[in-house]
Design a protein around this nucleic acid. Structure first.
Lengths: 127, 127
DNA sequence: TGGGGTACGCACCTTTTGGTAAGTTGTGAT
DNA sequence: ATCACAACTTACCAAAAGGTGCGTACCCCA
């Protein structure tokens, strides 16, 4: 047997509690949220916004080598998750500003220590 | 103009400090580390091992619907990162146990609050 | 008159990620 | 004699993520 078992089979006789149950089961909505905030671009956008609200073009140039498509996509999913708010003024060079909502600030506060740990650990490893 | 600019161009006149510099530049080794620990399977494996060392087969059945290929691959990269250690005894049903190293415990301690936040936030959202 | 900035959306293509199924080695059970 | 388990590896294929380039609308500047 080498096939991957179904969710039902796995839940049926689960060997590990995995932090108290279904939090880590694959269809849990919190899993999607985690993907959004720890994803390659989501994390960068959140951290960039942790320094204060920024315009589209600031994010575009400030985040190393992000494509316009990915920036737009990332901002839209973070907005849908309620972590980022979009403030658009209908002026004639369009002016759109993005910033963190309260929940956005919360996650970012959890993400920054992770970045710091990664920086320190990878630095101490390469010596 | 819509092409993605190169790293050099971006670093040339960077608008955002982004948490003090090159930590978030795309070739930084800490970025790879973050991908490994927050990736879909890396996170699950680390959390599963946070409850104590487990055998291959326990992880295989305990983590919801992971394929053997992905489990092996994830364990090997986490081992290469120094976050997981592999304890294999050459007995005749092979016995291999995986556990967290000290740095592995450190990251996992940072990851768990993130999972808890995601669980609470997604729960409170859907009401 | 033409080029550039601002904030995107869309279509196409490549790269990466992940799943499926099969093979491996040795032993003990049926 | 064959099946199953343990802990994997490999080859092949599908799906998802991501990049490139183009188009939009409006204006300002030279």
């Amino acid at each position: 047997m080498s096939r991957t078992e179904t969710e039902e089979e796995a839940v049926g006789r689960r060997a590990l509690p995995l932090i108290g149950g279904p939090i880590l089961s694959s269809d849990c909505p919190s899993r999607a949220l985690i993907r959004d905030v720890t994803g390659k671009w989501g994390l960068l956008v959140l951290v960039a916004l942790s320094e204060g609200p920024r315009r589209w073009s600031e994010l575009r140039h400030g985040i190393a080598v992000i494509s316009e498509k990915m920036l737009a996509q990332t901002l839209r999913t973070l907005e849908a998750d309620g972590l980022v708010h979009r403030d658009s003024r209908p002026v004639v060079p369009p002016y759109v500003e993005y910033g963190l909502t309260a929940p956005g600030e919360e996650v970012t506060a959890l993400l920054i220590p992770l970045l710091e740990w990664a920086g320190e650990y990878s630095e101490q490893r390469e010596e």
